[in-house]
């Protein structure tokens, strides 16, 4: 498996504050890779260094085979970037943004028009393509920025919090859009996010970072499997007694009462529900409802850091 982004102990310090602390990131080619962490974890600093916008204090990295310190121009030519904050000019049209970007990135004249049409098709701006950007909705602006980042056919697309501040529906459509892009083109996507769901649904692999360091990195599925903690929630009469009884079972890692419901922590919960139900009826506890929850990346994050990702990182 070849890597398209690789960093060696990349570090960024501001006075006595270390924003990124000796990170070794390995991003496989043609994957959708997520950098997940709370606000202030160092995600933007990390990708700013990879985009050659920011110089690392120590360490270095390679993007598309080019050194981010010595070959900044080549790196910039190989990447597309969508910044966390908007980078659009209100008084230019969508099409003009694309034209401008194409010429700044030296897209040759004979394919320029085709590329622009292609991207306009992709981002589905319709008639709005020739209206000023100030009339666009948040989702349209985001799509335009992503499309713009693709005009010069980059090898890596950096997306810094691509769906920040968008409504759930728009968010879903952006996800779908990024997935399709990654499948249709020879393109690696590196995105930062603090939305668990986004990392879970979109990414082939996720690096969880906190306080400037990678805590763990793997596919979302493996990360969650590692927790070995599905939760079975059961509604029964006299739950207290049920908890005491069922604790004796060998496959139950923990059982407790929460809000009048019984919570059972188990591994591979889907296989154990029949056994739990049978046990309950044998012991004379009629079950009213059963629910199974797989752990989320949030649980993974809590396990490693002891705090919720939605709270500000310190």
């Amino acid at each position: 498996m070849s890597l398209i982004i690789e960093t060696e102990n990349i570090t960024k310090k501001y006075d006595d504050f270390t924003a990124v602390n000796s990170i070794n990131l390995k991003v496989p080619k043609n994957s959708v890779y997520g950098v997940l962490g709370p606000n202030g974890a160092g995600k933007t600093t990390l990708i700013s260094m990879l985009c050659t916008i920011l110089k690392p204090t120590m360490g270095t990295g390679r993007v598309n085979g080019y050194d981010i310190l010595k070959q900044a121009k080549e790196v910039r030519e190989s990447i597309g970037i969508v910044f966390q904050s908007r980078a659009l000019d209100d008084i230019l049209t969508g099409r003009e943004h694309l034209e401008m970007h194409a010429s700044l990135y030296g897209v040759s004249h004979d394919v320029r028009q085709d590329r622009i049409d292609e991207v306009l098709d992709l981002i589905a701006l319709g008639k709005k393509a020739d209206e000023y950007v100030k009339t666009y909705s948040g989702g349209m602006k985001r799509r335009l920025e992503i499309g713009r980042g693709l005009i010069h056919h980059p090898k890596v697309l950096f997306l810094d919090e691509p769906t920040l501040g968008l409504d759930p529906q728009t968010r879903e459509s952006i996800w779908e859009y990024i997935k399709n892009l990654n499948q249709a083109q020879d393109l690696t996507v590196l995105l930062t996010t603090h939305y668990m769901e986004e990392a879970d649904k979109l990414c082939d692999e996720v690096a969880i970072i906190n306080q400037g360091q990678i805590i763990t990195a793997d596919s979302p599925k493996n990360l969650k499997r590692e927790l070995k903690a599905d939760t079975i929630t059961i509604n029964v009469d006299s739950p207290q007694e049920f908890v005491e009884k069922i604790q004796g079972l060998e496959f139950i890692k923990d059982a407790f009462l929460m809000d009048g419901e019984v919570k059972l922590l188990v591994e591979m919960g889907e296989n154990l529900i029949p056994a739990v139900v049978e046990f309950a009826s044998q012991e004379g506890f009629p079950i009213k409802s059963v629910e199974l929850d797989h752990p989320s990346l949030e649980d993974v994050f809590i396990k490693f850091t002891g705090s919720k990702i939605s709270s500000e990182g310190k």
């Binding site: 985009c51 121009k73 910044f83 980078a87 990135y105």
Partner: peptide, 10 residues
């Protein structure tokens, strides 16, 4: 933010 788009270009 538009200055970024210009400054990051090669």
């Amino acid at each position: 933010g538009f200055l970024k788009e210009i400054l990051v270009a090669p």
